[in-house]
């Protein structure tokens, strides 16, 4: 496989991850796709500033993050939107499916600053240092946001279970 083909394959993987992250940020499929396209457009324009020694994936996530932040200033994210687990997810055990949707719902209740570190780490592709770079925050800040976020998530999910909240899936 030549260099270009390898690069394209890697980009396909990155774009898939970017789309997942964009879905969490926007909670809306169309908006998420717009955000990904905006990110790619900016990356094309800034390709000459990309340092070939640096991590392409972190660079792209950083562009997406900054684009999202500036768009939030212009238009509010649909706060009422709910991030739904797609029907296509092959989960035969309905209890598990409910649990997955539950954790997505719990995630939505967190402040965005806490949600982002949790999601970047859950995508299982970035180290703390890389994720902190993508979010443009110091490592210490990243640490504490992740710590607080995960603890809050644990309490929210715990609360959901204890109140036997019924979820429509």
């Amino acid at each position: 496989m030549d260099a270009r083909a390898k690069l394209e394959r890697r980009l396909t993987d990155y774009v898939t991850s970017l789309r997942r992250y964009a879905l969490v940020l926007t909670r809306d499929g169309d908006r998420a796709e717009d955000l990904v396209q905006e990110t790619l457009t900016k990356a094309i324009a800034a390709a000459d500033s990309w340092q070939p020694g640096s991590d392409l994936r972190v660079w792209l996530f950083r562009i997406l993050h900054n684009t999202h932040v500036s768009e939030r200033r212009r238009a509010r994210v649909r706060e009422d939107a709910r991030l739904m687990l797609p029907e296509a997810v092959d989960e035969t055990d309905p209890t598990k499916r409910i649990e997955l949707q539950q954790v997505l719902d719990a995630l939505e209740q967190l402040p965005e600053a806490q949600r982002q570190p949790i999601v970047l780490v859950a995508l299982k592709e970035m180290s703390y240092a890389e994720a902190a770079r993508a979010l443009d925050v110091p490592l210490g800040t990243f640490y504490s946001r992740l710590g607080r976020g995960r603890e809050a998530l644990r309490k929210i999910v715990g609360g959901m279970k204890s109140t036997k909240l019924r979820l429509v899936v």
Binding site: R20, E33, E91, L100, V103, L107
Partner: peptide, 14 residues
């Protein structure tokens, strides 16, 4: 783990 699985699912749906 659950989030990882849920996020992977989000990708499939889009």
């Amino acid at each position: 783990d659950q989030l990882g699985a849920a996020l992977a699912g989000l990708g499939e749906g889009a």
